[in-house]
Design a binder for these strands. Sequence first.
DNA 1: AATGCGGGGTG
DNA 2: CACCCAGCATT
Length: 279
Amino acid sequence: MKVLKDQQQRLQTELLAWGNQHRRALPWRETRDPFLVLVAEVMLTQTQVSRVATIFPSFVQRFPTIAVLADAPIQELLALWSGLGYNRRALRLRECARSIHNQHQGLVPDDYRVLRSLPGIGPYIANAILAQAFNHRVSALDTNTRRVLLRAFFGTLEQTRELQRKADELVPAGQIWTWTQAVFDLGATICRPQPACAVCPLQEGCLFQGRGDDPHKTPRRQSTFEGSHRQLRGRVIAAFAQGVTTKAELARHIGLSDSAFDQVYNELAQEGFFEPNTT
DNA sequence: AATGCGGGGTG
DNA sequence: CACCCAGCATT
């Protein structure tokens, strides 16, 4: 037992040192503003770091605070979101800002339960905000960091709840932000699904040692995008974001004025994509 | 537990 | 063309 703890501490020290040497320079790492961290984490759900890095700066320049985002015109919101995909995230992010603005004194909550109650914030984003913006000793567990910790530190498959507890204990009290970035960076550059163990700073003492399969379960396959419903939604929203705002104009712009367009339009309207600003 | 949600990048 | 990607909400 003690041996295991000592080993974990060695790995922890190695990972922290490596992280400080190899930290990726990313726009959202230049701030600890809870609001900006929140925006970055929402953008990063199922969307590559490289793409978020190109869009995050202009987005937060236009919507730099809770109050400003809460009043964002949806058309402009979607225009600045363009390129990130999963457009409903943008709507939920705006709703989240409104909720914080109206019910939480305009301050991002520093409590897990309260964060989870906000639209678009699940277990991962709640912990990511708490760790990076509020210095809480919790682990931001996504597929990336889960893989790293399971491989190097725990070795066996754990239940979600138990893994979260152990991962939280692994966060060094004095270097929470640094630790969080180090785990992300190792997972993104070395401890990938196909890992580069030969150049890994944890190769001595890692429980994985290149053996076995990726502990992360293989994700579902997504149906072909070309010709899909999702693509059609994307085209309608892209046109709307560029200023084609009426239903008739959108129908003409998309090029199918039949019931197929009607269905997609109504679906998007139902989700709130065309709503005017109602404060 | 399973499904829908975007779309650009890579091999 | 298949597969990948800092999840969440809904059913």
